[in-house]
Design a protein around this nucleic acid. Structure first.
Lengths: 334, 334
DNA sequence: CAAACGTTGCCAACCGGTTTCCAACTGGCC
DNA sequence: GGCCAGTTGGAAACCGGTTGGCAACGTTTG
């Protein structure tokens, strides 16, 4: 049995509407009434019914979060951060794993939108076209996370700088021929990283060997890429992300190639396990929890002050930094 | 602007209640009306307001999931599984990370309970007392996941068997002195695993060295434990879970102790990254996605047929199995 | 042909809060 | 003592669906 506002009212000797006002922060009620109502509510364990409240106010107190793959610790971390910040602001979070499937992603937004105040979307996959189509499905605010697109509010990390730092670090260690194993084609993150790599390639300080694109899963794709890296004559490799880096290292080890002695490896993301691996991974650290908090904060700003038509939404770009651990070493001329 | 049932009714030329019945699976409406209403709803992009529906039916269409730490891939995996199954059954999932904090955990249940149809609780930490107190806070059904407690419905894995398998495997490889690095004291999972270890210890086939308890985080605790393991003269070690195993391996490597050549390591859980590590980890595989699905299914059974007072709730125990990879090897008498 | 029956769709009540509007009461002041 | 301003609390409408009861209609059967 649920305790309703009417029971609280009866217990406090007032009307239901008075209870509502006494419990509301800005409501008009005498201190005495407020006290009495609060006591009665406390005693009965009263919790306002969210559905009833949502029905009249139009606000649910919920946020939606859509991620491509919770098994990637990068997104688990984001999920944790979003959830923690939202809780602090009195909101609960729906989490939906889209399995990198565009259909599921669209579906998730459609399903979630009516039951939330706003949607946080981690979607490296969807095209700008699809994103815009998706926004027409709902008038709920959308914040993109680790993805940017003109016309959308977003929070991203400066991957271009991160990649540049990684290559600079390897260059400083004496590496001159460096392989780059890219991520899923046509995703925003892949494009951003590739841009960083290309920028360095153009300067001519290092020679870049591009070794195609792999899915950030530990499967045949990565092991194949590892062999290509070995054949390329590169002394170091920059991976799309830490998962790919682990896959490469695993194959290198199986082939008898030691990391970092024979091959330096740099990952990207700095997922939780990167520091725990053997050897601990040198990687471009992307602010995950920080980005999550920023995205939630941006969402709340949008909820409080709805966007003016035509105004370009806010975009926030967070800095990255290289974390040097044990998977990179100076190049010893063989 | 939200499309309401009344607009659909007007468009279809019927009354709002007819729309509701035409759209309901078991509702009484002619095929012709059904068709017309469905078409109008489709055309207008009608989505029933969940709050309004929840208010009258008492069902929200939401599930709550509480986990101790999303950064542990074990729980991320569970989260993914729960989410996928719930989506298939038309439910959205609130995820709450309790950060292994009892206060936050209780708070999460209190906050979530009124807005969900049921709560899935991954709580290794809470005492039976606290669990029972927590249940008195709400009349919503609760299913425990990877934790059991008399009087609660639960889905767990047979860790006792898993630990026995791990020790049997090491014994078969010739190891006779084996260290066990336990997990957080006074948690259900730790007790269960310890029971498996003790059972084998009693048989006398192997000698067990107990190396205290560590938190499943990659910090000083684990590295300290690694040194104790090295000093103990054990040739193999079973870790509380994969995270701890990684921590141990990292320290071993730093100390120049090779895995598996000088020291065999067995983890527990089989998290996603275990197969990707170098060396790939031998570990006790716990059914994560399977357990998640089973828990959701159990929850739905409870929602359909509410528990009879006094009847002992269902408990489901899933099998575990040892996955032999590269972190264990035969013991070479030094 | 009338009565009985099944079908179909509408009206209205209801879920549990919030909010507007208004009545009553308080106290201050002339 | 009477009047007014300011405060306090209550009745009722409302949010958007669902559902029981019922009227109207068409069909079948005695």
């Amino acid at each position: 049995m649920q305790v309703t506002i009417r029971e609280v009212a009866k217990a406090a000797g007032v009307s239901p509407s008075t209870v509502s006002r006494a419990l509301a922060p800005g409501g008009t009620a005498s201190q005495r009434t407020r006290e009495r109502v609060r006591a009665a509510a406390e005693r009965l364990g009263y919790r306002p019914n969210p559905s009833a409240r949502g029905l009249i106010t139009g606000r649910t107190g919920h946020l939606g979060l859509i991620v491509p793959d919770l098994l990637n610790p990068f997104f688990a971390d984001i999920c944790k951060g979003v959830q923690a910040r939202a809780r602090g602001l009195g909101h609960a979070v729906f989490v939906s794993d889209s399995e990198r499937d565009e259909g599921l992603e669209l579906d998730a937004v459609r399903t979630l939108a009516p039951q939330v105040d706003g949607v946080l979307l981690c979607s490296p996959q969807l095209s700008g076209e699809e994103l815009r189509g998706l926004r027409d499905l709902t008038d709920k605010p959308i914040v993109l996370l680790h993805r940017s697109e003109p016309g959308f509010a977003s929070v991203t990390a400066d991957l271009l700088e991160g990649m540049t730092d990684a290559l600079t670090h390897l260059h400083a260690l004496g590496h001159r021929r460096i392989a780059y194993v890219g991520g899923p084609r046509s995703t925003w993150a892949a494009g951003e990283r590739a841009a960083g790599i290309e920028e360095m390639a153009r300067t001519g300080t290092v020679e870049i060997v591009r070794v195609g694109s792999v899915a950030p899963h530990f499967d045949g794709g990565i092991t194949g890429a590892a062999d290509v890296v070995l054949a390329s004559g590169a002394s170091a490799v920059v991976a799309f992300n830490d998962i790919v880096a682990f896959g490469l290292i695993s194959r290198f080890t199986a082939r008898g190639v030691r990391v970092p002695d024979d091959m330096s490896v740099v990952g990207c993301d700095d997922i939780a396990l990167s520091g725990m691996a053997a050897p601990p991974l040198t990687t471009v650290s992307v602010p995950k929890a920080h980005g999550a908090r920023a995205a939630v904060d941006l969402m709340f700003r949008m909820l409080v002050t709805p966007a003016v038509d035509g105004a370009e939404p806010l975009r926030r770009v967070l800095p990255t930094h290289l974390v040097v651990r044990g998977s990179t070493a100076a190049y010893e001329r063989g």
